[in-house]
Write a protein that binds this DNA or RNA. Sequence first.
RNA 1: GGCGGCAUGGCCAAGUGGCUAAGGCAGAGGACUGCAAAUCCUUUAUCCCCGGUUCGAAUCCGGGUGCCGCCUCCA
Length: 490
Amino acid sequence: MTIKIYNTLNNRKEEFIPRQPGKVDMYVCGPTTYDLIHLGNARPLIVFDTVRRYFEYSGFEVNYVQNFTDIDDKIINRAREEDADPLALAERYIKEYYRDAGALGVRPATKHPRVSEHLPEIIEMIQKIIDNGYAYVVDGDVYFSVSKFSGYGKLSGRKLEDMMAGARIDVDERKNHPMDFALWKAAKPGEPSWNSPWGKGRPGWHIECSAMANKYLGMGFDIHGGGFDLIFPHHENEIAQAEACAGCGPFARYWMHNGFITVNEEKMSKSLGNFFTVREILAKYDPEVVRFYILSTHYRSPLDFDDTKLEMNKKSLARLHNALDNVEALLHSVSYGQSDVSMEREIVQLHKGLEKAERDFREAMDDDFNTALAVASLFDLARETNAFGKAMAEHAGKPLPESVREILEQVRDKFLKLSEVLGLFERREAVNKDESAQLLEKLMALIIEVRQEARSKKDWATADAIRNKLSEIGIILEDTPQGVRWKKSK
RNA sequence: GGCGGCAUGGCCAAGUGGCUAAGGCAGAGGACUGCAAAUCCUUUAUCCCCGGUUCGAAUCCGGGUGCCGCCUCCA
């Protein structure tokens, strides 16, 4: 079984062949840290985190590099508005980034390099590009000469001639070609700057990624990712810089780009002002719901955002949680051992469902990380499992064979294993361990006992009053064939 | 103007040549329940329009309509 990846470089799905067997080197463009991240920023984080998780699940060792752009016009402007130091401001938002990303179940990359810590590498790279004849210096600025680089446009599928037609106004007259872009910007008064062979200044936007990817992954690394809007000019320029510097290619072998989050079918972006920060969304929705929502669509498709979509996904996700709750309850509320009940037929059926679910899951993920389809396999497994639980209910009160317990444990373990790839259901284990949780457990047992007493006397008024009052304070009681259980409502 | 993408049931969303077009949400009916909840079963699509290729197309080709993105900072 091999993984197929849709490669923007040639707009085709290709079999993924790693540079080194068993290893994946990937670089994903991280945020410019001048503000809280919004949902549009969160999509690539979740998508590529999932890509990484699936590679790891498939047995690869993943070296995942994601940068922070902590030197940039927007940071400088924001710092000026707040009368703050630009690097300190960037540092602050890097911390906020970790908070949001962590909440969404995005694991830290193997390495999070920052521009501010790689000036020597960047300067060295620029010098080499100049030496190789692909860049020129004008008044302390350094520009990349796109017409010198024959491969320019190969990622975005554009030709220089075509782009000139649409190129906008205010072309800097000092540039040789309108599409030439800055590798180094001469310092303006009051801006942070660093010494360089061309005078004080700071790096252009694109060079950082070329330099840092090169440093940590080297030329020809496996996967480079980011949002669709980075294809041009950012990634096109990264390729030009890296390959002009090295004198050969490729810079990266597979390019993956995620689609946009839209609002009312329009791209969510800072400049349009139609964005929602992760922070404000998480104030209303469980991060797991947000993650599930993002993974419920293929990563290259656009994904429209509004509250009703989150509500829908919240309910969908609850179905999976219920299925897992059901399995846990069956494991704990039924006695297993000597039994005159045979459930062989159902066990065989569930076992088949279990194998099919895993097979379907892998096939889906192997096919360009089709998370939407992978999720469907979890729902299939949930249905099979619930049906099994229904069959068990017919033997309620009797001990069941160990083989029933075993298959349920297998289902639970597989379910958690597969959903871990998607970054879901990871926090279930952690809860219910502290003292007050244990106390709550005992308290609920007591309340349920009292209510059962009322039920046995057919005192429905009391029984329902208890259930309703509990519901009001956020606890849901369920009378199942295997006994009463409770859970917190979400 | 150049380049690219999308259009699947009430909603979301897989599927890119061939068994009965996944899955979820919502709706309807039934089962279970003291009533609920949870769950199970049943049920809802000629795949934007027109033409073509093919034994056969949601899927390929041509044309049309509508929407979106990139070409400028943007995930």
